[in-house]
Computed example of a mutant assay.
Amino acid sequence: MTTYGYFLSCEEHGPRELVRQAKAAERAGFEALWISDHFHPWLDEQGQAPFVWTVIGAIAEATSLPITTAVTCPLVRTHPVIVAQATATTAALTGGRFRLGVGTGEALNEHVIESRWRPAAERLEMLEEAVGLMRELFTGKLVTHRGRHYQVDTARLYTLPDEPAPIYMSGFGDKSIELAGRIADGYVSTGPSAESVEKFRQAGGAGKPTLGGLKACYAADEASARKTVHRLWPTRGIKGEASQILPLPRHFEQLAASVTEDEAVAGTPCGPDPEVHARALREYVDAGFDEVYVSQIGPEQDAFFDFYQRQVLPLVRG
Rank of each mutant, 00 (worst) to 15 (best):
V52R: 06
G140Q: 07
R282K: 06
I238K: 12
L255Q: 12
A121F: 09
D153S: 12
I113E: 00
Q46C: 09
G103Y: 03
F51V: 10
T87H: 00
P41Y: 06
L124F: 06
L43V: 06
R250M: 08
M169K: 01
K215F: 10
E31M: 07
G191P: 01
L127A: 08
E195V: 14
G181D: 01
T2Q: 14
G181E: 00
H277M: 07
H145W: 15
A287K: 08
E241R: 13
Y158S: 09
G240D: 11
R20P: 04
E241L: 12
R250V: 06
V143Q: 02
Y168K: 02
E61Y: 15
Y284G: 10
A280L: 06
A225V: 08
D153C: 07
E110C: 12
V83Y: 11
D37C: 11
V265L: 03
P269D: 06
E110F: 02
D221A: 05
T68C: 14
M134I: 04
R310P: 02
Y168D: 09
R123A: 14
R16Q: 10
D162I: 01
R99C: 10
S115Y: 04
G181Q: 07
E31H: 00
E283L: 11
G186I: 01
S64G: 13
I35V: 10
I67S: 06
R148I: 03
L142C: 01
P119K: 13
D185R: 15
A91Q: 13
R226A: 14
E163A: 14
A264M: 11
D286R: 14
